[in-house]
Design a protein around this nucleic acid. Structure first.
Length: 274
DNA sequence: AGTAGGACCTGGTGGC
DNA sequence: TGCCACCAGGTCCTAC
């Protein structure tokens, strides 16, 4: 599911509902989502901790808690975090329910059970696979055309595989990779070391623009994605290629091609992207 | 070093 | 309507 814009939208929707509230306890329905520490330790450690703030790094959500702890959540494909009143029936696939000091509940729901939850001392990111090795935040000032040039030069692969590599750029997933490549007019299998300066500049702006548009529309709800209030996003109506295989390219009218690139379903225009 | 393929899970869709 | 194959916003691991 969620890529950077969706995770950012979840973060923004949760902030006003969670910051300065205390987690009074947690009910565990499926312990498998808790990757560290043990389920028992998790339940003991998190009780009575105050949520001081929420941050995002790549596709990870980081809840800064009192006591020097951070609750880290990765939603993977179908994870959802929703704030609900306790009287609302707990839906199927709800794995954790946090009780909050204001009487509400924070529920972690995940159909496919791929989501991962950790509770670690703040800063001990090495305890979490993937988080410590994340690459640059694409919407930060650290991400520049020069930085992109440097990253591209260090990898010899297809450009779509590069965009999906979280150790290079953090947060781009399958939807925004396809959208950015179409916007930039680049074929997903173009080699990273064969792009000229103008193409890199175009790609740089396309990646940022698509992520920013995704946030502005509050994320893409092709299937399961909802924000912290249970609301769907709106960017699915703006998609130019993702989920549009066989339909006409909105630039040239020719049918979009659906293939597999870097092991992922990929849609592009063989005329506009080369 | 790169990528392909399988694994992890459940559910929706489209074909027959 | 039923059954089946295949597909899905991610990442990790193994094998070429």
């Amino acid at each position: 599911m969620p890529e950077l814009p969706e995770v950012e939208t979840v973060k923004r929707s949760l902030e006003p509902l969670l910051v300065n509230r205390k987690i009074t306890g947690v009910n565990v329905y499926y312990a498998g989502v808790i990757k560290f520490p043990s389920s028992l330790e998790f339940q003991e450690l998190i009780a009575e901790k105050e949520i001081r703030g929420i941050n995002r790094r790549g596709k990870y959500l980081l809840f800064e808690l009192s006591g020097g702890l951070t609750l880290v959540i990765h939603l993977r494909m179908t994870g959802q975090i929703v704030i609900s009143p306790p009287e609302k029936q707990v839906s199927k696939h709800t794995h954790l329910v946090f009780s909050l000091s204001d009487g509400q509940e924070m529920r972690f729901i995940d159909i496919r059970k791929f989501g991962m939850i950790y509770l670690v001392p703040t800063g001990d990111w090495h305890l979490i696979g993937g988080l410590a090795s994340l690459g640059v935040e694409p919407l930060s000032d650290d991400f520049t055309p020069q930085k992109l040039t440097e990253l591209l030069s260090k990898k010899k692969s297809g450009i779509k595989a590069f965009l999906l590599d979280q150790t290079k750029i953090a947060g781009v997933g399958n939807i925004y990779a396809d959208e950015a490549l179409h916007a930039a007019g680049l074929h997903p299998e173009r080699k990273t070391d064969m792009l000229n300066d103008a193409e890199i500049e175009t790609l740089y702006h396309a990646v940022r623009a698509k992520l920013q548009e995704g946030i502005a529309f509050r994320g893409t709800s092709v299937r399961d994605y909802v924000d912290g209030k249970g609301e769907k996003g709106g960017f699915q109506k703006q998609l130019k290629v993702y989920d549009r295989g066989g339909k006409p390219c909105l630039n040239c009218g020719r049918p979009l091609v659906k293939t597999t690139v870097a092991g992922r379903g990929t849609v592009f225009c063989s005329f506009c992207q080369d």
